[in-house]
């Protein structure tokens, strides 16, 4: 990282995420069409930005976490993942009580379908922390852009 960033911890997840996310935003902006955007374009751009934020968070975390590995893999082969999810959609069984909630949590945390409960909770804790950071940084960026 650059020396003038030494006021913050350059290796913190927050810094790395902000850096990666801004780079991704720039790359997205570069490929933006010059014509005034249609609603469809806006929706596509929104999805791209959302995906970019998740991807940059996952790559900032690295591959040592299960959920970030899952996010990166999902983004790398997105079409395949969508097809698989469609196939799996009919197989979801309804359970009751706590199991149902755990399954819901599994669906929320990326890559949680293949985890046991213990590591699922571990990954959930880390994922919540990263999501909080992500929201914070994105809100700061939006505030900067809109004020």
């Amino acid at each position: 990282m650059t020396p003038h960033l030494s006021s913050t911890n350059p290796s913190s997840i927050k810094t790395r995420f902000a850096y990666k996310f801004l780079r991704a935003l720039k790359r997205l902006n570069r490929h933006r069409p010059t014509s005034p955007p249609s609603p469809n374009d806006i929706f596509r751009g929104f999805r791209m930005i959302k995906m970019a934020s998740y991807a940059s968070m996952a790559s900032a975390v690295g591959s040592r976490r299960g959920w970030s590995r899952a996010v990166l893999r999902k983004i790398r082969c997105r079409a395949l993942e969508i097809r698989r999810r469609r196939k799996c959609g009919g197989m979801i069984r309804r359970r009751s009580g706590e199991r149902n909630k755990v399954d819901k949590l599994r669906n929320l945390v990326p890559g949680g379908e293949a985890m046991d409960l213990c590591s699922l909770l571990d990954e959930t804790a880390h994922y919540i922390g990263c999501l909080t950071t992500q929201v914070q940084v994105m809100r700061n960026i939006v505030d900067l852009c809109s004020t």
């Binding site: 933006r32 806006i42 929104f46 930005i49 970019a52 934020s53 809100r139 960026i141 939006v142 809109s146």
Partner: peptide, 16 residues
């Protein structure tokens, strides 16, 4: 949190 991320990326997209 995920909804916030969506909302913020929507905001960013609109701004951009």
């Amino acid at each position: 949190l995920q909804c916030q991320v969506e909302f913020l990326s929507m905001k960013l997209e609109v701004v951009n």
